[in-house]
Design a protein around this nucleic acid. Structure first.
Lengths: 186, 186
DNA sequence: CTCGATATTGACCCAGCGGACAATATTTAA
DNA sequence: TTAAATATTGTCCGCTGGGTCAATATCGAG
């Protein structure tokens, strides 16, 4: 049975993510993660061989959650414009687009430049975002323009996430969606 | 004479910023900062009463450098559009818009949610950016639209900085300027 | 020159960290 | 039932970090 260890791992990742929201990258320790999960520090290192590996898996999982949300919306999309809307709204899901979550994400981002594995995951995230956007943009404009547009949208989305992380009340989900929608091609 | 202590402080801030670029937030220690400045750890705490205060002053100063660049360009601007261009190009100065600097900035951002002083500085940065943008936008559109536009531009600029921090070769200065210019009002 | 202020060092403290490990409990398979 | 595998704990360790402090050097004003 693989399930039991997978469940435990799952719990620990979730606990780590919660601690990351509360304490940031500098304040997150293995002991706090263990306490949050109601376990001992030893068990964390039993499932994740190092703190770095724990963070990597946390980032991977957070990414999967977001991906699933976007996919769900993409599956209901018919037109290219629907696809763009799906990506945008999926990236601002009310229960994900919250200040604490943005802060946790920001903390992980800050580690990216010094952790090759995190960097790989980050690259995959951007690549998927790019391809999702392209599937909506390509039918609407020349390929080279579409590429630039995709980068622009992607950066704006990230920038808005960053903003919510830095200033909790600075922007609402509706504003966020409107802001990104406003730069879509006519 | 105040000058000598001010010079020392200046050196230490610069050293701290360099270490921050190399090592990120988690890898930056008082000893490394001292070593980078060719001094002892004690002297760092002599001038800055704590690590947190050092970081705050580093962020303040980095912000001042950027501000001066933008101001310089703003002073040469005549039309509202010139003002917008000044802000945009000032935020992507070739020697400031580099991957290591974006990474250092990102590291400081990650601390903002858990450091009230950093948060205040960050708020001031955003406020100035907003007002700079408004001085260019207000003549071009209704006030309420201008406010939204200013937020959008500001988020896009941050998002592009973030992108360069996460992926060193992902975007050039020219691309960055073009991307932001592309969302200006007609 | 002298004295008070300031600059600077290096030694010290100790809390907390990531990680290793041996000991024990629990589960699973045969 | 039993043995192997796995899960879990608590302890231990070495080290590094921020911060304190007393001692010394340097400097600047009178």
């Amino acid at each position: 049975m693989r399930a039991i260890s997978d469940i435990r791992r799952q719990e620990l990742r979730a606990a780590a993510f919660r601690v990351l929201q509360r304490e940031g990258i500098t304040g997150t320790t293995l002991e706090k993660v263990a306490a949050e999960a109601g376990a001992s520090k030893g068990i964390v290192l039993h499932y994740f061989h190092s703190k770095a590996e724990l963070f990597q898996q946390v980032m991977r999982e957070a990414n999967l959650v977001l991906r699933d949300r976007v996919i769900e919306r993409l599956n209901m999309a018919r037109t290219p414009r629907d696809r763009l809307r799906a990506v945008i709204e999926g990236n601002f899901e009310p229960d994900l687009f919250t200040s604490p979550i943005c802060q946790a994400w920001l903390s992980l981002c800050a580690e990216v430049p010094r952790d090759a594995a995190l960097a790989r995951i980050q690259r995959a995230i951007h690549a998927r975002m790019h391809s999702n956007l392209m599937s909506g943009l390509r039918p609407l404009m020349p390929a080279s323009e579409a590429k630039e547009k995709a980068l622009q949208i992607s950066c704006l989305i990230d920038g808005i996430w960053l903003r919510l992380g830095l200033a909790p009340e600075s922007i609402t989900r509706e504003q966020a969606v409107a802001q990104v929608t406003a730069i879509l091609p006519n």
